[in-house]
Design a protein around this nucleic acid. Structure first.
Lengths: 233, 233
DNA sequence: GATTTTTTTGGAACGTGATATAAAAATTGA
DNA sequence: TCAATTTTTATATCACGTTCCAAAAAAATC
């Protein structure tokens, strides 16, 4: 229902979609130009060439608009080749690294976006998590690992996925709050993923995940030392 | 009123502390009576019997006040007996359960408090995490476990603690956002802790943490089923 | 007691997200 | 083409967190 758009419903809906598109576009531009500070609903409406009330009619709230911006950007599964050469557990780590890399490529933008989202109606963050496609992708990875005997069969992959996501979001929040730097994003996520996966792993994957976790831990160390050094209280 | 002389700094500071106390008290009362909706700075100032500007002079922001409310409440280490009967890893789980139980005992209050905190200047969440006493308590638990050979010596306990805290906060956020119910708080935190600890554990603790994780997973299952059933999209 | 310094006070103001209202415009159906 | 329906627009408004300011009050200093 997004790309070909064979104009299913009449012209009214089309114009509505066009306005929606303009608003999302304007939001993206404004964030990019002025950061989250300049992204007010009034500025947004002006930039999109609509009235102040329209974004509310079309999206409901500012948070919903920012969410739409976020979802408009990412075509995740596409870019993930699969890395079939490595073990299924490493594949999970690679996927996590790819997800992080999105943020690394445009940190200012994402930081402003997330910061602005958190500062407003945050209730619909759930759509971020409860995205069926995303969910299916990750559970697919985990199920594959379980199927090949790398994860314990007693472990429920859906619950495990949720737990991995907790780590992801927490590290991101940490970054957005300025408590860690961009360079700690990859190892921070990787460490948590590796450790949790090791907790769910069979004997087969235990050593591998430990190695990964320790490697990430080593990457994390310098930043951690610098932080605690620069805050001497 | 004739204390010998514990008033280290003059009367000015004392009056300031008194005002601070009144503001924190008023905030607690207002949350309890009206939820986070009724907790406006104007209402708070009126309730505390001070001017609107005073809370800003004394705390800086609404978020800082709510943080002060939170810290005013908890005397955590005290109530934790230690549970020396059980294994060090179980001790960590028990401590987590105790932390969760604080929220279980007064869910409406804490939910309003956190919800209000998140909706305002959220940058100083770091103080929540960066509480030295708290940090020392948890690292103490982990170091003890490592010392007795339950955790791998290569694992840095400070990093591990941060990761456990990520789980804790994420589950809490999930609850505050209404995505999980109160009954999932304990098993949700327990599951994440057990899994992560298993990931950091030596052979000695591996089986134990798996048992715990699976037990929590079983507790989690019914709520999860009910949720996905009631949201049929 | 008089002076100086610090802090609170009352109140106005700003920009924010969000809502409500009536009028205007655009789309639909006949 | 005309009437009915839906949506946008413009504007006013609300409550909110926050900041600013001159004046008053209070404590510390002399």
């Amino acid at each position: 229902m997004q790309q070909p758009a064979p104009a299913a419903q009449g012209r009214r809906e089309e114009a509505k979609a066009e306005r929606r598109r303009r608003i999302i576009h304007a939001a993206r531009e404004l964030i990019r130009e002025t950061g989250d500070a300049g992204l007010s609903m009034r500025a947004l409406a002006a930039r999109a060439g609509v009235s102040l009330a329209t974004p509310y009619n079309l999206f409901g709230s500012k948070g919903a608009i920012l969410l739409a911006v976020l979802e408009d950007i990412k075509g995740f599964g596409r870019r993930f080749g699969g890395y079939e050469a490595c073990s299924p557990l490493d594949r999970v780590l690679k996927a996590a690294a790819l997800a992080v890399s999105y943020y690394e490529q445009d940190p200012d933008f994402y930081r402003a976006l997330w910061g602005s989202m958190l500062r407003t109606t945050g209730a619909e963050e759930r759509s971020m998590i409860f995205n069926p496609k995303r969910e299916a992708f990750w559970i697919g990875l985990l199920d594959a690992a379980a199927g090949e005997g790398w994860l314990l069969p007693e472990i429920d992959t859906a619950t495990l996925m949720l737990n991995l996501d907790f780590t992801f979001r927490s590290v991101m929040l940490h970054w957005i709050n300025g408590e860690i730097g961009l360079e700690s994003l990859q190892p921070g996520v990787g460490y948590g993923y590796a450790l949790t996966l090791r907790g769910a792993a069979t004997d087969k994957g235990r050593q591998l995940m430990l190695e990964r976790a320790l490697a990430f831990q080593a990457e994390l160390a310098p930043a951690r030392a610098a932080r605690s050094g620069s805050r001497p209280d």
